[in-house]
Nucleic acid binder design. Structure first.
Length: 265
DNA sequence: GAGTATGTTATATG
DNA sequence: GCATATAACATACT
């Protein structure tokens, strides 16, 4: 589930549940999801602290505590955070916190690519993870500058969280489709018009997805994500989607609308 | 069994 | 050391 819009939805849920409240009991159900810290150590860091706010940079969630340190939560491929008024029995439950108003915040993650950690400050976290500017906050000028400074494929560049943070496999496909750019086009060969189009398409699809609760069925059918399945068709020219592997990730493209723009050298 | 999955990162290569 | 490419991580499903 989680690219920027899904993570933003989780952030709002966590902020609502935790902001201006105190963390009580902390339970690590599976130590494998902790990054660089032991169960006992993270419990000591969190228990009794109050949460000031829950922030997000790209796909990284950050609970800012009253000592300025940060509880970092990353959803990985299959992570989710649920708020309940009770403890939870769940096969994939990895981490839980009881909050001072009596609710519980539960981190669930089937595949365990997600992570929970603790950092001395937001800056320490952002530096350690080498996260670029957030995709919703980056200006067109900065987007164009950063993206076009790489010579690898545009798709790979958009997925590189140190270039900009938040875009994943599905949303990058959408942006490239909207702008009719082939995912293997070299990033540094894009025109300023194409870069501008990508920035615009990025904001559009990310914002729309947040508003829709990231339910792709609610998107207009001009979007690839509305029906991103093999066998279905490009809404512009009715060609059947093709898939191509870029950087080891499956990419959906329209074979007619998204031609390879740069000759391979 | 093979292939695939919305993410990140360690390791290899040039 | 840097930019880029690829494998690996854990688990479930088709």
């Amino acid at each position: 589930m989680p690219e920027l819009p899904e993570v933003e939805i989780v952030r709002r849920r966590m902020h609502e549940a935790m902001a201006c409240r105190r963390i009580g009991q902390v339970t690590v159900h599976d130590e494998a999801i902790l990054e660089g810290i032991s169960s006992t150590a993270i419990v000591l860091k969190l228990k009794g602290r109050s949460v000031e706010e829950v922030l997000r940079r790209g796909k990284q969630l950050m609970c800012v505590l009253d000592d300025r340190s940060v509880l970092a939560v990353h959803l990985g491929m299959t992570g989710d955070v649920q708020v309940h008024d009770h403890p939870l029995e769940h096969r994939h439950l990895r981490f839980s916190m009881k909050i001072s108003n009596g609710t519980w915040v539960h981190f669930i993650d089937q595949r365990k690519f997600g992570a929970v950690g603790h950092y001395m400050s937001q800056e320490a976290l952002l530096a350690a993870k080498r996260l670029g500017p957030d995709a919703l906050a980056i200006s067109e000028k900065e987007f164009s500058g950063r993206v076009s400074s790489h010579r690898k494929a545009i798709k790979t560049t958009l997925l590189d969280q140190s270039v900009l943070a938040g875009v994943g496999n599905l949303y990058s496909d959408e942006m490239l489709f909207q702008c009719r750019i082939h995912p293997e086009t070299k990033a540094d060969s894009l025109s300023s018009r194409q870069l501008k189009c990508l920035h615009c398409a990025m904001l559009d699809i990310l914002q729309r997805s947040i508003e829709n609760g990231s339910d792709f069925e609610l998107l207009d059918n001009k979007y690839l994500l509305h029906d991103r399945r093999s066998g279905s068709k490009c809404p512009r020219c009715a060609s059947v989607w093709t898939t191509v592997s870029v950087n080891g990730r499956t990419s959906f493209i329209c074979p007619r609308c998204q031609k390879v723009a740069s000759p391979r050298s």
